[in-house]
Every structure is written in C-alpha cells, then in structure tokens.
C-alpha cells in the first residue's frame, strides 16, 4: 500500500495544476504598463500597426504556436491598422527576459504607442482577440 501514496499525491497535484492550466491558457489579461515600457519597431524588428500590434512569441517545441499564428494572421488580415509580428523566443532571449515571458505561445497586445495593454499565455480564443482589438482606439 505504501507504494500507492506517491501515485495519489502526483495525480492529485497534477490534477489541480491541470485544471488551473486549462482555465488560464489562452485567456487575455489586461496589462498595466507605463509609457516607459513601450516597445518600438526597432526592438521588435518590424514596424508597428497604426492602431494595434499583436506580438506572438513562439518556440520550436510548441504545439499551440502554429494554431495561434494561423488564428492571429487570419484576424489581422482584414484590418489594415493592426499588425501581427511573430518572434522566435529562442533567438530573442534578451527581449524574453525583459518582457518576463515564461512560456510559448505568449501574445502581447500593444496599443498605437507600443505600450502593452494585454497579454495571453497559450492559444487565445478568436472572439476574445476580436473583442480586445475592437476596444482599442
């Protein structure tokens, strides 16, 4: 019976984490960043959108990164004032550290001044992305 204890501990802890994981992944959270944290086109290696910029950090060992890219490219395709930028996290570790990114995909929502106003860890939901885009001027 003693050998069943670690199994029960592992499965229950993993279940708690798993439920949190599924609930938190993809949710867009509001970020409160001051203008000093603004990201520039220079830093991101690509021009910003005139209204909104979506910045996705991806990595090689990431299954939902592809789905996230397809979704965001699709959402952005009809909006001329919104730009989508994908960044290989592995090649930009300084930026990853500076922006406190822990996992991929992480998508940042930047306003017209390049200030982060929202962030989603994991593949975001289409409606949520569209909602947060329409709330930005």
């Amino acid at each position: 019976m003693k050998s069943l204890v670690p199994i029960l501990i592992v499965l229950s802890l993993a279940s708690v984490y798993g439920i949190w994981y599924q609930r938190s992944r993809g949710k867009i959270r509001t970020s409160k960043k001051g203008p000093e944290g603004a990201l520039s086109a220079e830093l991101l290696g690509s021009p910003l959108g005139s209204r909104v910029t979506l910045v996705q950090f991806s990595s090689a060992f990431c299954t939902p990164c592809r789905a996230t890219r397809i979704l965001l490219e699709n959402v952005v395709s009809t909006l001329s004032d919104v730009k989508y930028i994908e960044i290989d996290a592995e090649a930009h570790l300084d930026l990853v550290r500076k922006l406190n990114i822990h996992s991929t995909p992480t998508t940042l929502i930047l306003n017209s001044s390049g200030i982060e106003v929202g962030r989603a860890v994991g593949a975001p939901n289409r409606d949520q992305v569209i909602n947060s885009l329409s709330s930005l001027r």
Partner: peptide, 24 residues
C-alpha cells in the same frame, strides 16, 4: 508520471512550458 498524465488528461504542452525556462 506527472508530465504524461497532464498531457493525456489536459493536453498539456511540456515544450511550451519548460523549453523557454531551460533556455533562460
């Protein structure tokens, strides 16, 4: 076991969560 169970039950992506942390 924890990683395998999370993958099976919650579609957990280990590479997404761990790879960047290892690099950092």
């Amino acid at each position: 076991l924890a990683a395998a169970f999370l993958n099976a039950a919650f579609n957990f992506c280990l590479g997404c969560e761990v790879y960047l942390l290892l690099l950092r």
